[in-house]
Amino acid sequence: MRIRVDPDRCQGHARCYALAPELFDVDDYGQSSVIGDGVVPPELEAKATLAIANCPEYAIEERSEE
């Protein structure tokens, strides 16, 4: 599983950071981003899925592995 935050959609609700701080960081302006290259270790996939499902702006995308 690989994820990214769409910076144009993210409005800084910070739900992803609250639910999965291992996967997301948030800057001083509220902008979220994935930590590292966005590849989610298997043990954190449930948390990633939860973060995706709770973003009010639908800003987190799951990207197919290439």
Binding site: Q11, H13, L50, N54, C55, P56, E57
Partner: peptide, 11 residues
């Protein structure tokens, strides 16, 4: 568990 509420607005 799934709660995309907009109490703080949207956009």
């Amino acid at each position: 568990a799934v709660n995309r509420h907009v109490a703080f607005g949207s956009g």
